[in-house]
């Protein structure tokens, strides 16, 4: 699925698969180092009554480090490096069209509470990507959070994050 280089013109180039692979392998190695160092702190040896708290995590980190190092090296020594495009520019734009609003949505949850943020998010998404008319947007954008509210707050008595609006309404 990855290297759909066939139709990618010059302007579609972003980064190569190899670059991404190297970056991810390096991140993996960083995480491994973190895991190993903290495991070393809590004790990573085999005591008289079995392994200490850090024993398994330490070796897990070590194996992860070695495996990622292998990936890293493979990317450089191979005779056929995967220089295909990681993601086409148009594809990247579409992915960002979802990812950026979703990040904003998660941020909004902390400010507005989940219900209001969801209404805004659904409305924005339908308007921006679906080009729907308000007559179509409003029922969905209001209906879904309302249904969730009834289900969670009233029916199942599971409180979800709430914001100023709900507080003003006495919840």
């Amino acid at each position: 699925m990855n290297s759909e280089t066939g139709h990618s013109g010059q302007n579609e180039k972003t980064v190569t698969n190899r670059t991404m692979d190297v970056v991810v392998a390096l991140i993996f190695m960083g995480v491994s180092a973190l895991v190993m160092s903290d495991s070393w702190r809590v004790g990573a040896s085999w005591a008289a009554d079995g392994p200490q708290a850090g024993y398994f995590p330490f070796y897990v980190g070590l194996i992860m480090f070695i495996a990622s190092a292998v990936t890293l090296v493979q990317n450089f020594v191979t005779r056929h490096p995967d220089l295909g495009n990681f993601v086409d520019r148009t594809q990247l734009v579409s992915v960002m069209q979802v990812l950026v609003p979703t990040v904003a949505y998660v941020g909004l949850i902390f400010i507005l509470g989940i219900y209001l943020a969801s209404a805004v998010f659904i409305a924005f998404f339908m308007w921006w990507l679906g080009k729907y008319s308000p007559a179509r947007i409003i029922p969905v954008a209001v209906g879904v959070p309302l249904a969730l509210f009834v289900m969670f707050e009233i029916w199942f008595l599971v409180p979800l994050p709430k914001g100023p609006l709900e507080t003003a309404l006495g919840y």
Binding site: F28, V31, S32, V60, S68, T71
Partner: peptide
Amino acid sequence: AAMMLGFA
């Protein structure tokens, strides 16, 4: 690597 990440 993926499996070890899960364990970690």
